[in-house]
Amino acid sequence: MPITALDQNELRASLLSRLSGLRAPAGVHGTVSHGTDSGVRVFGYCVQERERIARSRMEHPAVVVVLSGTKEIWHGDVAQAFPAGVPFVIPAGMNFDMVNIPDPASGRYESICITVDDVLRQALRSNLRHLPVTGRIPDRLDVELSPALVEAYGHAASALSGIGVVAVAETLARYRVLEVLLLVAVTPVAGVLMAVGRREQVEAIIYADPSHPWQVGEVAAELGIGASTLRRQLAGAGASFREVLLSVRMRAAGALLGSSGYSVMQAAQAAGYASRSHFSRRVQAVHGKTPRQLKAAV
Rank of each mutant, 00 (worst) to 15 (best):
V143T: 03
V143L: 02
L145I: 02
S146T: 14
S146V: 02
S146H: 06
S146P: 10
P147Q: 05
A148Y: 07
V150F: 02
A152K: 09
A152F: 06
A152S: 12
A152G: 03
Y153R: 11
Y153M: 14
Y153E: 06
Y153T: 10
H155V: 03
H155Y: 12
H155P: 01
A156K: 10
A156F: 10
A156E: 00
A157V: 06
A157I: 06
S161D: 12
G162C: 13
G162A: 15
G162F: 13
G162M: 15
I163W: 10
I163G: 01
G164V: 07
G164L: 10
V165Y: 07
V166L: 11
V166H: 14
V166C: 11
A169C: 10
A169G: 09
L172I: 15
L172R: 15
A173Y: 06
R174L: 10
R174A: 08
R174C: 11
R176H: 12
V177K: 01
V177I: 09
V177W: 04
L178R: 04
V180R: 09
L181Y: 02
L181D: 05
L182V: 04
L182A: 05
L183E: 10
V184L: 06
A185E: 10
A185R: 01
V186W: 00
V186Y: 00
T187C: 04
T187V: 02
P188R: 00
P188F: 00
P188V: 00
P188I: 00
V189R: 04
V189D: 08
V189A: 09
V189N: 03
A190G: 08
A190E: 04
A190F: 05
G191A: 08
G191T: 06
V192W: 00
V192I: 09
L193C: 07
M194T: 10
M194I: 11
A195H: 11
A195D: 14
A195E: 14
V196M: 12
R198F: 06
R198N: 07
R198W: 12
R199K: 15
R199S: 13
R199A: 12
